[in-house]
Design a protein around this nucleic acid. Sequence first.
RNA 1: CGGAGCGUAGCGUAGCCCGGUAUCGCGCCAGUUUUGGGAACUGGAGGCCGCAGGUUCGAAUCCUGCCGUUCCGACCA
Length: 565
Amino acid sequence: MRLKNFFLPTIKEEPADAVVISHKLMIRAGMIRQLTAGVYSYLPFGLRVFKKIENIIREEMNAIGGQEFYLPALSPAELWHETGRLEDYGDTMFRIKNRDLVLAPTHEEVFTSISKVNLVSYKDLPQIWYQIQSKFRNETRPRSGVLRGRQFTMKDAYSFDSTWEGLDESYNKHSQAYKHIFTRCGLKFHIVKAFSGAMGGSDSEEFMVESAAGEDHIVITENCEYASNIEVAVSHSEKVERKNSNLSLEEIHTPGIGTIDQLGEFLPDVDRTRLAKSRVFINGEDVILTLVCGDDEVSETKLQNYFGQGIRSAHPEELMEVAGAEAGSIGPVNFKSGKVKIIGDLRLEDADELVSGACKNDYHFKNIDLKRDAKDIEYKDIRTVKENEWTLDKKDKIKIVKSIEVGHIFKLGTKYSEALNSVFLDAEGKSKPVIMGSYGIGVERICAAYIEQNYDDAGIIFEGEITPFQIQLICANTNKEDVVAETEKIYSELIIQGYEVLYDDRIGISAGFKFKDADLIGTPIHVIIGEKNLKNGNIEIKHRRSGERSIIKKEELQGFLANAF
RNA sequence: CGGAGCGUAGCGUAGCCCGGUAUCGCGCCAGUUUUGGGAACUGGAGGCCGCAGGUUCGAAUCCUGCCGUUCCGACCA
């Protein structure tokens, strides 16, 4: 490709609205332009990278027997109502105003509507169907460039099986394919346990790229034996010791104390872990009170795992009604609503000498003995793990890092096939719902995550399969006809040899300008043809990542490149 | 959705408090000189100062409303 014929609007200055590295560089390198919040135009250079990523995905999906589809983004609202997701998604789904259609944020419903009619016998199964297509999500707050957009490209795949063992197999195939895909894309990633939704027992894993720009927090260890999204991570944590002192319950006046920090200052002699922190959740008609140690936080995702995704934090006005006090003064004793269900964290199992809210504003109780003073507590792991805690097997300490979710694989089960009545007849002639899995990859996120991991002060550093161009050919002295002629000749040769070359054939632009552009857009090898070197039959090679330059004989170029790629 | 910031030429910005013909850099066009790390000089083009209303002799500047956008948080497969 000749740069004169290639639209590559590079920018020297940092765009004012971009904050994360990948966003800045994708704009500066002429890959994308923002149209409106969370919506980006892909320019030729950016598209080239996205297409390379898509092709890797396509190859690996085909390799596990995936069949490519292309479904519409527009779909009837009715279809989403049938699975309840029209309501679940709410505002996150774009709805068409002048027709009863929605813009699909994912495609379980549409694929299932096809399986329903066409996968009717166990002989039709298994199937793996996928597509690479635009998704629309009305994110309340798009951010970080293409990392969270309102329109983005997703590879979404769905497996259809007749048995649960078959689902396991389909799931494992995807797991393998994903490892290949992200490795080929040059990403360093972690596979972590993830939130599996309301259906207990379903497996779910996320493919995470460590990055400061990420929105997720994951838990990893030095030996990599344990990895989990922090939402569902578990660790070894010491139980609060039971003292059996049998001290009697005592009400204490705590005016204006609403947080655990304030309570800790007010009662400096009480161990922080014994200040039991209460939070109230509403799950349909049920009221749930959670109790964790004062130095812990409750994990709402874990609660969702136990009680379903409908569970939510109680509103302030509800607190007075059900608990009889405001947020800072709620506890397990004297809770107003009789039908409250108390869930204590495992650390607090049968603990005593605790301090917690008295369910009366500005009062706390001390010497709470959960065994004695609170009835029917159920103990579960509901806390969020913390940095440096031991893993359950105590072999390693955990680290918490931010990361970008680039892929997610998920055993769906029969949620959608049941809702939409996609059933097949098994060998005995019995009708059964198809067993499904769903598997997603964010195409632009791969690109952004790659850049987050591969850049320096000068710009992007591309390498490997997703590299848009392998070689940038630079004529350093365009005012010298023989230098230009020689560069042209080398360009033709490189093309014949099958390299993807970006030839900076712009006339009258200083060499320095071309070098800066080449560094910014990150081409791995720069071949520089300059007057001085050429006189001696030499050309210069620059390796983008290391910055290393070498002078070689013209004739050595072919061998050098064969070695480099 | 709550909080904060920003909106001036293609990009990055000054001016706004304290109202009086819109600043600078990059980029762009023409010419000359340059040509190995974002060249120099000269000349030029380019602006409903986000939109609407108000105050005023006069508004980029003050007031009101709206829109857009970014960040923090909440939410979110």
